[in-house]
């Protein structure tokens, strides 16, 4: 059977190239199974917590401090259990988390608009950029007295503090994200014939997403901290009892067990939101771009 020369050449080439691809394509290490994940990232923190509680118990047993100042782990657990049973813990969590979420969403909106404006206008960025960065390092608790004088002991004062704490992180995160976009990618958008809106939508925003997400994560952490600072100081029966306020009640009653239980709750909620919302989001974004540690090989 006569065989066409060019067909043979094409088949040759195809096999050659497929062989090259097979040799050169990066091989990613397999994803670790659930057992390995458990051993590597779940076990160590559990060991650390157990060790911490053991040390704490040891300190109590040796009467390092009087028991009103250093209650035993069991006392704290009983108080904690009490607040969970009578619903105080849930009320405090729901009040604080809804405030935190609302404050964070408001910061997200304001910070994003501010970041976009600063990115679009070189002048605006030169004018207020240093102050926005400076605000990031100002502890937001410093705003509490001012907020109380402006807004009284109200939700508005709390939200003002949260916004002042989180908006700079969000705006700076967005700016950092935009700054890190390689100019070549924007060129690609222009070569493909995308208009300004298309380039922002299909190239710029997705390219800036990792930086933006880092800003949002920091923004949430700052929101939560600012919220606790605000709740701790703006105590008023009209405001309801959030976690910060519960902590303040503990202080006023000299009830160290309630103080520790409240600190514990504040920590847990902050970590839980980070782990349940931001960590998976970030992992997903990084993994699709091959930026996780697993894919670098």
């Amino acid at each position: 059977m006569p065989v066409d020369d060019t067909t043979v050449a094409a088949q040759d080439h195809r096999a050659f190239e497929a062989g090259l691809d097979a040799l050169e394509a990066p091989t990613l290490p397999p994803r670790p199974g659930p057992g390995a994940v458990c051993l590597r990232s779940v076990l160590p923190p559990i060991v650390a917590v157990v060790a911490f509680i053991a040390l704490w118990q040891l300190a109590c047993s040796t009467d390092l401090k009087p028991s009103y100042a250093l209650p035993s782990p069991l006392d704290v657990f009983r108080t904690f259990d009490q607040t969970v049973r009578d619903g105080r813990a849930w009320d405090a969590i729901s009040i604080s988390v809804s405030r935190g979420a609302l404050g964070f969403l408001a910061s997200l909106a304001v910070g994003t608009v501010l970041g976009l404006a600063m990115w679009r206008s070189r002048w605006l960025r030169a004018a207020i950029g240093p102050f926005v960065s400076g605000l990031q390092s100002l502890p937001s608790v410093a705003w509490v007295p001012a907020a109380i004088i402006w807004f009284g002991l109200s939700d508005a004062a709390i939200y003002a503090v949260v916004l002042l704490g989180a908006v700079p992180s969000v705006a700076n995160g967005l700016l950092a994200g935009f700054d890190q976009v390689p100019p070549l990618l924007d060129k690609v958008g222009r070569v493909l014939g995308l208009g300004t809106v298309g380039r922002i939508r299909h190239v710029l925003l997705p390219a800036a997403l990792p930086g933006y997400l880092a800003g949002l994560k920091q923004g949430w952490a700052f929101s939560w901290r600012s919220l606790m600072a605000a709740e701790l100081i703006t105590y008023s029966p009209a405001l309801g009892i959030g976690l910060g306020q519960q902590l303040n009640i503990g202080r006023e009653l000299n009830a160290m067990d309630l103080v520790i239980a409240s600190i514990f709750l504040i920590l847990v909620v902050g970590v839980a939101i980070e782990l349940l919302i931001f960590a998976p989001l970030e992992r997903r974004v990084l993994r699709t771009r091959g930026l996780t540690r697993r894919s670098v090989s």
Partner: peptide, 25 residues
């Protein structure tokens, strides 16, 4: 010559494969 490789992410491709995707684009 990248039949069936469309679902791969950029970081899963070799340099030559990436440049061929760019050529296809």
């Amino acid at each position: 010559n990248l039949t069936g490789q469309g679902r791969k992410r950029v970081h899963e491709l070799s340099g030559g494969m990436r440049q061929r995707v760019a050529l296809a684009r």
